[in-house]
Computed example of a mutant assay.
Amino acid sequence: MAINLVKGQKIDLTKGRSSLKSVMVGLGWDPVSQKSGGFLGGLFGGGSSGAAIDCDASVLLLNENNKLSSKQQLIYFGNKSSNNGSVVHTGDNRTGAGDGDDEIINVNLKTVPSSVHKLLFVVNIYQAKQRKQDFGLIKNAFIRLVDNDTKQELVHYNLSDNYSGKTSLFLGELYRAGEEWKFSAIGEGTTDSDITSIANKYF
C-alpha cells in the first residue's frame, strides 16, 4: 500500500526494499472547469476561454552542492534522457486531460551517477505569462512513485495548497542518504515563467 505524504514529510524509499531498482515518477494535474459546457468545456471544448493549459514536468539532477553541473543534467521535453540513460522523460502531455499520470519520468536508482545527489521534480506552465495562466487554473496536482518491477505504488503526494498566481511548482525530490534513497514532499509554488529561469538558479 502506498504511503500518502503531506507537505514537508520525508520517507526512506529504499530502506527495507533492497530489491528496489527502478521507479516510475508519475506527475498529474487536471484543469479546473471553465464556464459552461461541462467539465473541461471551456479549456478543451473549443470554447472562448483561452488556450489549453500545457504543464511541463522536468527534473533537475543536482550535485552535492545543490547545483546543476551541466545543461545535460536538466531532463525535460527538450532533453528527455540523462547521459547514461538512468533518468528518462517519456514525453510531453499538452493538456492534462484524463485520469492518471500526465507525464512520467523513469529513474533507475542503481545507475544514477554518484555525482548526482538529488533529483528535484518541477512542473511549470508553458508560456504562462503570454497566455495569462497560473496554477489557480489547475487542480488535483500530485506526484507518485511506483516500483517499475512490481508496479506497486510506493508513495503518493497530493498538493492541496492554493497556488493561484504561481506559474511553477516544486513537487518533490529524491535524494541520497548514504546508501539509501529518500523522498521529500515539497509542494512549493514560484512565479518562475519557464524551466530555463528555474534551471538558471542552480548553475
Rank of each mutant, 00 (worst) to 15 (best):
K80I: 12
I138E: 02
L68S: 09
D161A: 13
W29R: 05
N63L: 11
S18P: 06
D149Q: 13
L145G: 03
F183Q: 05
G96T: 01
G100S: 08
K166P: 03
Y126M: 02
K129W: 02
S33C: 10
V6L: 14
L159M: 14
S115I: 13
T190S: 15
G41H: 05
R144T: 03
R176T: 02
L60A: 14
F170P: 00
Y76I: 04
F170H: 11
S115T: 15
K129F: 04
Y76P: 03
S81F: 02
T150V: 04
A185P: 03
T14D: 05
Y175F: 15
D102T: 07
D101I: 14
G28R: 05
K151I: 03
L62Q: 09
S22P: 01
Q133R: 09
T14G: 06
D134S: 12
Q72W: 07
S70K: 13
R94D: 07
S82Y: 00
L145E: 02
S160V: 15
K21H: 11
L27F: 09
G46N: 12
T191Y: 00
G38V: 09
P113F: 07
S86F: 04
V155I: 15
N63P: 04
V123N: 01
A128K: 01
Q127H: 13
I195E: 01
S81L: 08
G47D: 12
E180N: 14
G46C: 12
D54C: 10
